[in-house]
Design a protein around this nucleic acid. Sequence first.
DNA 1: TTGTATGCGTTATCAG
DNA 2: CTGATAACGCATACAA
Lengths: 344, 344
Amino acid sequence: MDSDKEVTIYDLARKLNISIATVSRALKDDPVVSKKTKKKIADLALEMGYRSNNFARNLRTQRTNTIGVIIPRINSYFMSAVIAGMENVATSEGYNLIISQSSESVEKETANAVTLFNNRVDGLLVSLAYDTDSLTHFEPFIKKKIPLTFFDRTVDQKDSTCIQINNLKAAYEATTHLISQGRRRIVHITAPPKRNVYVDRLQGYKQALADQRIAFRQDYVIVGNLSQEAGADAAAHIRQMKPFPDAVFAANDNCAVACMLALKQMGVRIPEEIAFVGFNNDPVSTVVEPNLTTINYPGYEMGQVAARNLIDRLGGTSGIRPTNTIILRSELIIRESSIGQKTV
Amino acid sequence: MDSDKEVTIYDLARKLNISIATVSRALKDDPVVSKKTKKKIADLALEMGYRSNNFARNLRTQRTNTIGVIIPRINSYFMSAVIAGMENVATSEGYNLIISQSSESVEKETANAVTLFNNRVDGLLVSLAYDTDSLTHFEPFIKKKIPLTFFDRTVDQKDSTCIQINNLKAAYEATTHLISQGRRRIVHITAPPKRNVYVDRLQGYKQALADQRIAFRQDYVIVGNLSQEAGADAAAHIRQMKPFPDAVFAANDNCAVACMLALKQMGVRIPEEIAFVGFNNDPVSTVVEPNLTTINYPGYEMGQVAARNLIDRLGGTSGIRPTNTIILRSELIIRESSIGQKTV
DNA sequence: TTGTATGCGTTATCAG
DNA sequence: CTGATAACGCATACAA
């Protein structure tokens, strides 16, 4: 017996003396086929080790059951949680995920888009690269009505859904919290305001200041790439500022932690001299001392919601109109890094 | 102009009054086609926005240019680095990755294997779930000669490659380092010895003790699931041990850090009273105070090597015989958590 | 409820 | 160097 040969519906049909059409329908659980023949076919399929050929089916149906994902980079705690969430629902719905990294470069993002387009993904989930400003590389998808969903780093775009948190509100809460602790000279560490997440956080920061009648100062905004190095650089910069700031609100935990460590190194006491709030609730926030106050950012859930929404749109089941935005809940988690009045 | 219709080789052929065979060959850059016609075809393809149909090609060639990946979970720093490395080489070689998580369960691992098998992946990259002991779910791949590569959590298996580090040596170095700092009562926190990584680390730990004529004590081996909770539990346990241990070698940084934090909470001084060495060089190891001595574990590189090796085998280019094992370099990184003699 | 026939877009085998 | 043609395995319109 040649177990190396794939068994096809032809084999099943021949063996049962029926047509391949019936076999095909039975395998799809088409209600038009009688229960009896269905059972016969299912049994034989199992026995002969039949597995359906996705290419043939895809070629026929023009669908792939595959979802493309483009993200800046996968190796951050947040992103890997997002991917885990997507994988979770995609797998359970019979979809596969093809994941590609833009490495924060528009060029790579464009190349990835082309690849995924050529792979005929049924839908696309995107978190934009840092400096992407044109969206022309997604136009082929839009033209072909391939559903496109942005998550986290989103952009307003007709015909596409956005999954995100309310960054403005989160930043507003973070800043207001610092003010409530008596802090007035609050520095904001962030990335250049090219992406919604940074624009909105800056906006929330500004609004909180304004609502408490604290003047916004442009020199209190430290712009970098939010890396650990950027955090250390920010620390060096902060050290020289006069008067010395009494709080920092960073747009990302990693950067906040690096900044904290560098300042501690210089002998600055946290939170006594300067309080800290980060963003993301990364695991490091509970390891650094003092533990970092931060915004809890539901990565896993965001991945699940993004995948679920896209799949619903693919099935045409979605009640949500394509152009909508889904806002996930986020919350301020207060830890020691920001508690208590200034003591210096 | 109906831009919604896909353009096929038929369209190109008709327009140029040549056969689809020639078009197909030209597109594949077959040397048998003349340079001139090749150029003509390439130009027209570009102009008409032709893109090749992978299903049709796959159906014909019985290949998918897709690699399946099964991992315990994606959302750890190490694993996401591995995936990033794989994505890097896979994309650059024209392969796609389908990633699935076993969530440390054999059942899900089996289900994932079935799915990937049905998706006709060209090859499979696997890091085994925690309690997998039978490999029957991979037999369909082996039977069909679909290359199978294990990485990190590997298993000896005829016809499949393993990519890993020398866990025994790394653990030996870690333990020897602790001993060189004057530590004698060294606790080892690990997972049940079902997977090579834990077996080998335990072995290295034992061997280092033996070589320094320190008696191995079974009650110094704390077994758990290496989670943060397990780390805290271990701390509670350690606290009660008499005499109090003077060092901990944990099989994973996350767990080590949680244990350190819990002990510090109890007022135990590190490294004065008890020294720590972890495993993985996770980012938290440079955030915890004191910074954690650890084994640098090349995740990104491991992903690259695994993908490269698999792709080479797919192309039949590999000089490496299928049954071989590739050992990546790892190294002990000494930080403050393990330096200095005991002072209590 | 079942069967027949066709096409999905390629690649590969021949024959020129 | 090029062309005609036959698969690849499945889904479906149409017929029975």
